[in-house]
Measured scan of single mutants.
Amino acid sequence: VRQEELAAARAALHDLMTGKRVATVQKDGRRVEFTATSVSDLKKYIAELEVQTGM
């Protein structure tokens, strides 16, 4: 499950970095929206997932 969450989070980051205004991911069973202003929060979430998956 964590691998899927990590892939979704990375895709969301890619979307935001390429101009999409809002990206949505499932985080702990709930839907979370990230915007360009919350990229740093999304990067932290990705880092947490990488630690949890041993990457």
Rank of each mutant, 00 (worst) to 15 (best):
H14M: 11
E5F: 08
T35E: 05
Q26R: 06
L6P: 00
V22H: 06
I46R: 00
H14R: 10
A8N: 11
K44H: 05
K43F: 06
K20G: 10
V1H: 13
D41L: 11
R10F: 06
Q26F: 08
T18N: 10
E5K: 08
V25S: 02
M55N: 13
S38C: 10
T37E: 15
E50Q: 06
D28P: 01
L16Q: 00
V1C: 12
T24N: 04
I46H: 00
K44N: 10
E48I: 06
E4Q: 09
G29A: 03
K44P: 01
L6I: 07
A8P: 02
A36E: 12
G19H: 04
T18Q: 08
H14G: 05
G29Q: 04
G54N: 07
K43W: 11
L6E: 02
V51R: 09
Q26L: 15
L49C: 02
D15A: 13
F34N: 01
Q3E: 13
E33P: 03
T53A: 07
S40E: 15
Q52C: 07
V22E: 06
S40P: 11
A7M: 13
R2G: 13
V51W: 14
G54E: 10
R10V: 12
K44A: 15
V22K: 09
V25E: 01
L16S: 00
A11L: 13
R30P: 02
R2M: 12
E48H: 11
E48S: 05
M17D: 05
T37K: 09
V51Q: 13
Y45T: 02
L16M: 02
S38A: 07
G29C: 06
G54S: 13
V51L: 14
E50R: 03
Y45P: 00
A7C: 11
S38K: 08
G19F: 02
T37G: 15
V51I: 14
E33N: 05
L42K: 00
M17V: 12
A7S: 12
R31H: 10
V51M: 13
M17S: 07
L13K: 01
F34T: 01
D41P: 02
Q3V: 13
T37I: 09
K43S: 07
V51D: 14
A12R: 02
Q26N: 13
V32W: 08
V32F: 06
R2Q: 14
M55P: 12
G19R: 02
R21N: 15
A36T: 08
R30D: 10
T18I: 10
E4D: 07
Y45N: 01
G29Y: 03
L13Q: 01
R30N: 08
V25M: 05
T24V: 15
T53K: 07
L49T: 02
I46E: 01
A8C: 14
V22S: 11
M17C: 11
R31K: 14
V39R: 03
D15I: 07
R21P: 13
A47G: 09
I46G: 00
V32L: 11
D28R: 02
A23C: 07
T18D: 12
A11F: 06
M55G: 12
A9T: 03
L6T: 02
E4A: 15
T37P: 03
V22Q: 05
Q3W: 15
Q52Y: 13
T53M: 09
K27S: 05
S40K: 12
T35H: 07
K20S: 10
E4H: 06
G19Q: 03
R10Y: 15
G29E: 04
V39N: 02
E33G: 03
A47Y: 09
R31W: 15
E48R: 08
L13T: 00
E5H: 06
M17I: 07
R31G: 09
G54Y: 09
R2K: 15
D28I: 00
H14D: 09
T53E: 06
T35Y: 12
L6D: 01
Q3S: 12
R21K: 15
L13E: 01
K27H: 05
T24M: 05
M17T: 05
